[in-house]
């Protein structure tokens, strides 16, 4: 029971962080059709900026400023890079973000070095929020959840209660129609791209010190974020939310489950004497493959994703 509850809390915390990362990507992907390979790089930049700002002004300032800086940078990238690549079609756009991801990692090497930086959780968050049975739940994880949920609510209000939100929503499902109605779609694209990268930056600010801030952190989450977007479905923030939580929980729970094919067979009364490598695999070992398996299965059997509005 204790294990279950703690794992659930860990899974939800991680899932919420994933959602913060993927919500921006979903918006960008659905509206602009761009698979933004550099999205996780903005997450990394968020963490590094927050580290730099917090050494001078403290964590509070970093939490506010770093996402804005990242968002502004994202908008600039869209305006002066992506839009140019857009003329050459989707492949060029995609390759542009691919190259950008590459370059960002190198810039991080250049500015902050190749090892991890010492981006720490501020001291006032160092402690225990509550103790469940005997396991303590750190304040910082609670704070992460709070920020994630706060962002979720803000995003929801923005999309459903404001004019720009309604236009974005319309553009999610019918981009051509929105353009036909006379809205400045390129400007909306720039806004969405900037907003999406800002969210990734925010995820970096709170994820960077919870885990570790290093040049490899973008690559580590990069493909998982794609999984979330694909599984959740095109144009569906709700889908991305469900998929994030699902994948967060899969990854957390699978660590604790030492159940193998051999055990499964044993349940049915079959004893596998000559346990081959496949039969001995436990769920723990399978954990890294599960998200991708899910993604491929979804792409083949339900290309619109869990809650997608359209196929592509």
């Amino acid at each position: 029971m204790e294990f279950f509850l703690i794992s659930l809390l860990n899974g939800v915390t991680y899932g919420l962080l994933l959602f913060m990362l993927s919500s921006g990507l979903t918006l960008i992907f659905s509206m602009m059709g761009v698979l933004n390979f550099a999205h996780a790089s903005f997450y990394m930049l968020g963490a590094y900026f927050a580290y730099q700002i917090s050494t001078y002004l403290g964590f509070g300032a970093a939490l506010l400023v770093a996402p804005l800086v990242v968002g502004a940078l994202g908008a600039v990238v869209e305006r002066y890079g992506l839009r140019k690549a857009h003329r050459f079609g989707h492949v060029a756009e995609l390759l542009f973000t691919f190259g950008l991801a590459f370059l960002v990692e190198e810039i991080v090497h250049l500015v902050w070095g190749k090892s991890s930086v010492d981006y720490k959780i501020p001291e006032y968050f160092d402690g225990t929020l509550f103790t469940l049975f005997s396991t303590s739940f750190p304040i910082y994880k609670g704070f992460m959840m709070l920020v994630s949920v706060g962002m979720l609510v803000a995003l929801y209000l923005l999309l459903t209660r404001t004019r720009i939100g309604l236009i974005i929503q319309a553009a999610l499902s019918k981009p051509d129609m929105v353009q036909a109605l006379g809205h400045d779609v390129p400007k909306i694209f720039m806004l969405v791209f900037g907003g999406g990268t800002a969210l990734a930056g925010l995820a970096g600010v709170i994820g960077g010190n919870a885990f570790i801030t290093e040049p490899g952190m973008a690559a580590a989450v990069g493909s998982i974020v794609f999984v979330v977007v694909v599984v959740g479905g095109m144009g569906s923030l709700a889908g991305a939310f469900v998929a994030s939580l699902l994948i967060g929980c899969i990854q957390t729970f699978s660590v604790g489950i030492t159940f193998s094919v051999t055990d499964l067979a044993a349940l049915f009364g079959v004893r596998l004497e000559d346990s081959s490598a496949v039969a001995r695999l436990t769920v723990t070992q399978l954990a890294p493959v599960l998200p991708y398996l899910l993604m491929v299965a979804i792409l083949i059997f339900r290309p619109r994703g869990l809650m997608g509005a359209r196929e592509s």
Binding site: G81, A85, F88, A92, G99, L100, F102, L103, E105, L110
Partner: peptide, 16 residues
């Protein structure tokens, strides 16, 4: 790698 990244972006934008 840095030069390479720059070179690649340059190619994408100016000589696709």
């Amino acid at each position: 790698l840095f030069y390479f990244g720059l070179f690649f972006l340059f190619m994408v934008l100016y000589a696709p």
